[in-house]
Each structure stands twice: as structure tokens, then as C-alpha cells.
């Protein structure tokens, strides 16, 4: 049986947007298309309080149906994974809740069930999380202030791919950076089943202070288009056929 595919945008940034439409609005648009938007905000080492500008991080994830987290760059690897997995569970639980509401009535959700029954349902959710296919589009802010964080970002993404590829379900990753040279986003790494092959270094950093987060999310949404996906799925089937 073919299981469904979960689609996620993972936005990694260190500041707030200052160009184009409101990122929360584009995030909620993406969510309506079945794409979850997760956001990781990277803090400077000396930032101890939650800075005002990073409030946006939480807002984008809220309207994008995803998960948000602020971290120092040292903890990025673990956070990228927790956020991605949490978002998967959250999405799947959302599906299950909808089904439950149809059976049990409008205001019943998974968490209103008694612990024993909840346990049985969570087992199903976990099974789905393990076996479903997943597409993650990573959207990395490459404005000047991200300069010293990009090597860590790269490492964290390779680590994410190690974790997700231990699952039974199939994965597909792509990396885009923003702002692009002439466009809103720029392709760094095309759809592929693993990230361990990224030798590509992120494109040259943009010196200006432009951070068009909103337009970037909008463009990212279209990258889930069928064409490139079809191609990459075909790519993956080839070795399988050789084996046969």
C-alpha cells in the first residue's frame, strides 16, 4: 500500500523579514496547500533574552501549522531533528484527530481520550510517522549576519538526513537559500533522497540587509511542484530495477 507524503518547509533564519509580503500570510497559504512550515531561529551567543525580532519565528510556524524553536547554533543539529519529527507527529495527529471527530463528535480530540485508548491511537500515529514518505524543503537565510552560522547549518542538515534515512519511509530533501541573486530564492541542492552528498557550499552571502522571508516561503511552496518530484522519484527507482 502506498502511504501519503508529508510536505514540510524548514526555514532557518536569524532575524526578521524586511521585504515583501508578511511571511505569516504566505506560511498560512502554504499550510492550506498541505505544506507545513517549521521555523528555527538562531540566536547570537550573547543573546540571552528572547529578542523582539524573533517573535516572528513563532508567528510563522503558528500560521504554517508547524513547530518553531529558538536555539544557539551549538544545539542546532538536535533541534533541526526534533522540530522536523515533532512537526511530522503533529501533522499526523491532526489527521487522526479529524477522523476521531467524525466518529466521536466535534469537540473530541485525541487528548480527551482516556490514557489507555490514547496509547493505542498513538501507536498508529507512530507507525505512520515511521513509514510515510517525507519531503523537506530547507530554506536557509543567507543574509550577511548568517555568515558564521552556515557551516553549522550544513552539518545539522547532513545529520538530519542521517536520522530521517533510518526510517522505513522514503525521504526527499532540497535546499534553497534566500535572498537569491535576482530571484527571491536560489537553488542550492536539488531534490534528492539524502543530504550526505552536499559538498556544495552555500552561495556567496548577500551583503545587503534584505531578508525577503515572505516571498521566499511563497516561492518555496511552488518547488513542491510535480515535475522535479517525478524526475527524482524516477531516479530513485533506477537502482531498484537494476537490482531486480
Amino acid at each position: 500500500m502506498r502511504k501519503g507524503t508529508l510536505k514540510q518547509i524548514l526555514l532557518i533564519t536569524d532575524g526578521c523579514s524586511n521585504k515583501g509580503e508578511d511571511p505569516s500570510a504566505t506560511a498560512s497559504l502554504a499550510y492550506q496547500q498541505g505544506i507545513t512550515v517549521n521555523v528555527i531561529g538562531i540566536l547570537e551567543d550573547e543573546q540571552s533574552e528572547q529578542p523582539e525580532g524573533l517573535k516572528e519565528v513563532e508567528d510563522i510556524a503558528l500560521s504554517g501549522g508547524g513547530v518553531s524553536q529558538l536555539v544557539y547554533k551549538q544545539a542546532l543539529s538536535q533541534t533541526v531533528q526534533t522540530v522536523t519529527k515533532q512537526a511530522m507527529t503533529q501533522t499526523l495527529q491532526g489527521f487522526v484527530n479529524k477522523e476521531l471527530q467524525q466518529i466521536l463528535g466535534q469537540d473530541q480530540s485525541l487528548e480527551d481520550l482516556e490514557p489507555e485508548k490514547r496509547g493505542e491511537i498513538m501507536e498508529v500515529v507512530e507507525d505512520m510517522g515511521e513509514t510515510c514518505d517525507l519531503e523537506v524543503l530547507v530554506l536557509v537565510d543567507t543574509s550577511a549576519s548568517m555568515h558564521d552560522k552556515l557551516p553549522t547549518v550544513k552539518e545539522a542538515l547532513i545529520d538530519l538526513s542521517i536520522s530521517l534515512n533510518a526510517r522505513i519511509g522514503r525521504n526527499r530533501f532540497a535546499i534553497f537559500s534566500f535572498p537569491g541573486k535576482r530571484k527571491d530564492i536560489q537553488k542550492v541542492f536539488d531534490w534528492s533522497p539524502a543530504l550526505d552528498s552536499i559538498s556544495t557550499i552555500f552561495p556567496k552571502l548577500t551583503s545587503g540587509g534584505i531578508t525577503p522571508t515572505g516571498p521566499a516561503i511563497r516561492e518555496a511552496m511552488y518547488q513542491f511542484g510535480k515535475k522535479s518530484l517525478l524526475r527524482s522519484f524516477r531516479d530513485e527507482d533506477e537502482p531498484g530495477m537494476e537490482e531486480a
Partner: peptide, 24 residues
């Protein structure tokens, strides 16, 4: 067994040491 490791600590994780996968 056979699934992705649910929880791990970097120092103890063979994926971190580049000595294997995170499959259970």
C-alpha cells in the same frame, strides 16, 4: 528493531561518530 532510533545522545550515537546509521 528496524525503525529509526527515537532518542539519542550525541556522545553515545554512532551516527555522530560517523560509524554507522541511526537504524535500530
Amino acid at each position: 528493531t528496524g525503525r529509526a532510533i527515537k532518542e539519542y545522545t550525541e556522545f553515545y550515537d554512532r551516527g555522530y561518530w560517523e560509524m554507522g546509521s541511526r537504524r535500530a
